[in-house]
Write a protein that binds this DNA or RNA. Structure first.
Lengths: 151, 151
DNA sequence: GTAATTTCTAAACCTAACTTTAGGTCAAGA
DNA sequence: TCTTGACCTAAAGTTAGGTTTAGAAATTAC
């Protein structure tokens, strides 16, 4: 009944649509930091709903959890973030997204060229060296093109 | 010295830039089918260089290995694929790529709206329900939005 | 006051796309 | 022929992003 006992993890899960296990996992990854009540259970602020929403959106944009943590570190630590604060860090997302779109459009253009010439033969094909490393740490052949482990 | 003893796996690896282990893995996934020489070693056709190139390119486009296998099944099985054959299956890639670009552009537009309003609060935010399931089986919260396991 | 929920931690499991390791076989050059 | 380097298989390890399980403690509901 107290105004500010905070949300239990289950309640936060319901509000965000995330699984309880996912929320705990995000905490382990440093994306969210609840406090503990007397019994050792996690309690969250209402602002954390928004924080997790941001995490989910950033994921749709293709950011990894470490990247999202980085972006979130742009929020003030000493007070509840304002809409202005959120807008500020959202701008970073926008440029990330722009880059991804650029990359894909470049790939598409190259593919158009290749459909025309039927090449697809290495190393002549332009598709083969789209000169961006955007995909470098995703899936796909792990050590392709200079991304090899040391030694 | 025979004209057609085929490429050993190491040679194919060098031509494509793939790791030997990756090529064996692709075989296990049904993406490529070498024959065996008398000693049981894998031998490849020169056309397989192009086949693996296609695999790598399709991966950059975001296709999974099963999807790539599916696309490759559009090639003739009884003869070496011609440039025309490659062009034919490349068209499918083009539409896949178009979809991905569309999705991202839609996300970007929504983000622009959200930067304006500072919302990011569920479930009002448009970013939250970009009404496409493109991301559904990628990474991210696994059972988000109706993608739950049975029972 | 007790039963039913929630929550807790730690550790194991999951998928995709590979790599690494271990123990042995094949092939090519001197 | 002998030796080195390439190749073989099967199984285990890796990373990201979580989920599942097990056993115990806290909370809530009646």
């Amino acid at each position: 009944m107290a105004v500010s006992e905070g949300l239990a993890i289950g309640a936060l899960a319901q509000r965000t649509g995330l699984a309880v296990s996912a929320i705990r996992y995000y905490e382990a990854q440093g994306l969210i930091a609840p406090w503990r009540n007397a019994g050792g259970q996690r309690r969250y602020q209402r602002a954390d709903i928004r924080r997790l929403s941001f995490v989910m959106i950033a994921q749709q944009f293709g950011l990894t959890l470490p990247e999202i943590r980085e972006v979130l570190s742009g929020l003030p630590g000493n007070r509840t973030p304002t809409p202005k604060d959120w807008q500020k860090i959202s701008v970073g997302l926008r440029s990330h997204l722009d880059q991804r779109i650029d990359t894909l459009m470049r790939l598409r253009d190259n593919l158009d060229g290749c459909i025309g010439c039927g090449c697809l033969s290495l190393p002549k094909c332009a598709l083969y060296n789209p000169d961006d490393r955007a995909k470098s740490h995703g899936s796909g052949p792990r050590y392709l093109m200079g991304d090899a482990p040391e030694a």
